[in-house]
Design a protein around this nucleic acid. Structure first.
Lengths: 120, 120
DNA sequence: CAGGATCCGAATCGATACTG
DNA sequence: CAGTATCGATTCGGATCCTG
């Protein structure tokens, strides 16, 4: 493992955090694994996020090329979100974090009764 | 704390993000791997963090039991920070994120020339 | 040496209302 | 349906000065 200016903002770990560290980003990505979803579906899956926040997070994920936004020129409007290849490549990170977090919560008496993709 | 629902803020991935997502937390944890460090040493390793921020992040890491703060009752004051077992257990996450981030940066033309523990 | 205290501007987040 | 626009509350982060 190669050198970089550790102190700088370009540490790989920080770069990763910048990509998925946003308020609802991990949740959005997780929901999109193996699922193409529409805006309204994401709203239902993540009700605590206001439309504004959801839009913002989705736009940032799109800018980072983690997700693909497809607009169908129909009425009523239809927009679908799906993971890009880059988005898919991040799956191992989410899974590693999921496992650690689940262990941690469990050991602290929190019952983890969902796979985080549960709201199905 | 009772069961959680996916949509709630207690998804394991979010719990993990809450623990290591702070401004300099990943960096601090990374530096502490295999190293016990004093406050002043951390300051030199992470010069972009003001003392205030560094203290704040360290306190939060301590509250989450990721690090151990040892105060030696001497003058001048001497305080050492070291990873707890829980802190050590998070290493795989940091490494997974490091690898993904390094690949990403590399593929985007950013030269990653340090191991993030480089400032040695 | 290792911080605490204080001030303040910037950024984030949320609730609500409105639109093509 | 899939967002915008606006406003206000909260939080974050940095600069500066102070202390046991």
């Amino acid at each position: 493992m190669p050198p970089i200016d550790c102190a700088g903002y370009n540490c790989p770990v920080d770069a990763t955090l910048d990509m998925i560290g946003g308020k609802y980003k991990a949740l959005i990505l997780w929901h999109l694994i193996d699922h193409t979803l529409r805006f309204g579906e994401l709203r239902k899956l993540i009700p605590q996020a206001t439309p504004k926040m959801l839009t913002q997070q989705l736009r940032e994920l799109e800018e980072n090329n983690l997700i693909i936004r497809t607009v169908y020129p129909v009425v009523p409007p239809k927009v679908e979100y799906t993971l890009s290849d880059l988005g898919n490549s991040i799956r191992p990170i989410l899974e590693t974090m999921y496992k650690w977090g689940a262990d941690y919560l469990t050991q602290n008496g929190v019952t983890v009764n969902c796979s985080m993709k549960c709201p199905d």
